[in-house]
Design a protein around this nucleic acid. Structure first.
Lengths: 355, 355
DNA sequence: CTGAAAGCGCTTACAG
DNA sequence: CTGAAAGCGCTTACAG
């Protein structure tokens, strides 16, 4: 910056003004400075700038490790993209799915003086205490684990209802649900229902509404994905074995994550059951669904909107100090592919669905 | 820091010394300062520290978007983990697979005064010119697109040879190869062969060595994965259609990425061919292989070693200014799962393999 | 062993 | 409209 100032024959202050409030600089000097700027290709040191203005233009992101569930890669990219569009750089820290101590990451983010932290992770109240002490705003995405912060989540109801309706229209009545086990995810109850309760009750409501069999034995609960990464399809495989070994097995399934679907398809294929001819499958997250054979229908989220809302929360929280928590809830939607078909042997399934 | 100094009744300089060279501080004061440190929970502002020492402890990573190919998530995580273990924070920028202008990212990394930049991306010489001008070391991982920088790559030979040997031992003779098309990846020739040439010639050498059919019509070349993200299994599907429509189709295939395998399995399943009974498949990257049905054998890389080497290069380049380019080449390895089986109809395949 | 001082690169009231 | 000066939070020769 000194070089630029010298080259243009002005003070560093004037260079800074040309950079950030050019209208306050006289025409002649402005042109000179601009020329020097172009000639040197000078770019301000954002670190020094951040030190001076106490705005780092960095935000922290604490999120589930994308190797465990590629959905979180999609989410993280969406957030990163929107953050960059708004001029922010993102510092990402990744963790297994639950109960890991994120204190180290939080400490690092504070040391880096990030302007805000986004959690897409099952955090605990004590995890964000240091952030609150340092007056750094927190936004929760995807999960709502503590109260008092901005929240951006997606309601599973629309997607689940459409999925069940779709299966019923194809003639299916015995529809299994593979969901999250509240006992595996000890979530504090922040607002009404936990994510696991919300999805299960959305499923039950859809079953009732669309006329599928209301048989709770078809609900199998566990983890959404492996937390170790070795044998990542295992959770779904184990649960699917159990389901197919039932006395009266279902003809279709709605799983709470695409990772579970990976295991489901492995079991079906190993038992010689074809998808969708012999069994219909719908996933959740719309992550690896298009990569499976056949490509799997899945319930997706509007991640672009989610990311936009999250960054908007971040910027709002940075700007106005007295800030009451915002809450955005986006709908999920069913994205159809090739993993569902009319119930084998069902005569005229569409009319049956109306019966 | 001022607070801590005041609380301990010393100068800020002494606090800094307790933090970074405690042996130079007298016992009594050191204890006092330590007490104040603990009491306040003070953490130094790494931004200010970086400004003063001109060491940001940040490194940039420019890598292929993990949504396009989850392999790059694995690679990026491995690098991030090792970087963090060495005290570095990672700034990641992600791109489609080729020919995108990374200049923006490079400019941002320079503005953030990163200590080094790792490329896992097909960069072009002009992309790193600004970095070299700013005296920021560059390390290339996975790809070697320009000369003169440290390089950490994996040789495909071991994995490919083992894969072909494995298939031949199962009785397969007509083994297809789905590889990268040199025309799709216009790589400058930096050292000997491009990645595409290297893999293809490794395949041919293995075919010759282990006694499979040397039929070049079984080699189909294209892209490793979709660069748009929509219909991510399409590349493999299209190529696999072509392969199965050959007059004398193969009985097994080695694909150059797991993403291609996703499409391969979709085609096989759509045509009613079972894996591995009717067709054997081996992938490359060991990324989504364990998620497919059946779990697919794949050629993997020692990503932990790769990451360690990359960060070692980074640290070496930061420390000694006169630095001659290092070059690390790690071997690939075949990781067996459930996607290969003896050739159907082949009597005693193992002895046949020896014939 | 310790503190006062200078300075990393920038921004911004303040005075003119 | 412009420059000199102070200061963001830290580190480190320098002098004692």
């Amino acid at each position: 910056m000194g070089d630029v100032a010298k080259m243009a024959g002005v003070s560093p202050a004037t260079v800074a003004r040309v950079l950030y409030e050019p209208e306050k600089v006289g025409e002649a000097r402005r042109a000179k400075v601009q020329a020097a700027l172009d000639a040197t290709g000078y770019k301000p040191n954002v670190v020094a700038r951040g030190l001076r203005t106490s705005r780092s233009w960095k935000i922290g992101l604490i999120i589930v490790d994308g190797r465990l569930n590629p959905y979180f890669v999609n989410l993280s990219q969406a957030i990163r993209l929107e953050a960059m569009a708004q001029g922010y750089t993102v510092l990402t820290f990744q963790y297994g799915s639950v109960n890991e101590p994120v204190a180290d990451s939080v400490a690092q983010l504070i040391q880096h003086r990030v302007d805000a932290v986004i959690f897409a992770y099952a955090l605990r109240p004590e995890d964000i205490a240091p952030l609150q002490a340092a007056n750094i705003p927190v936004v929760q995405v995807e999960q709502e684990a503590v109260g008092g912060t901005d929240v951006v989540i997606c309601g599973p109801q629309a997607g689940i209802s459409d999925a069940v309706a779709h299966l019923v229209a194809l003639g299916h009545r015995r529809i299994a649900f593979m969901g999250g086990d509240p006992a595996a995810y000890l979530r504090p109850r922040v607002s009404g229902q936990t994510m696991e309760e919300e999805r299960l009750s959305a499923f039950r409501a859809a079953v009732a509404q669309h006329g599928a069999d209301a048989d709770h034995s078809l609900e199998v609960l566990g983890r959404y994905f492996s937390t170790t990464g070795e044998d990542p399809a295992k959770e779904g495989r184990v649960m699917m074995q159990k389901i197919l070994d039932m006395p009266a097995p279902p003809t279709a399934i709605l799983a709470s994550s695409d990772m579970l679907v990976a295991g489901i398809l492995q079991v079906l294929s190993a038992r010689g059951l074809r998808v969708p001819q012999d069994f219909s499958v719908i996933g959740f997250d719309d992550s690896i669904a298009p990569l499976l054979a056949p490509a799997v229908s899945s319930i997706g989220r509007p991640l672009g909107d989610v990311a936009k809302a999250a960054i908007a929360c971040v910027m709002g929280a940075i700007d106005d100090s007295p800030h009451r928590p915002l809450r955005h809830v986006f709908p999920t939607e069913l994205r159809l592919r090739d993993s569902t078909a009319p119930l084998a042997g069902a005569a005229r399934p569409l009319s049956a669905a109306k019966a």
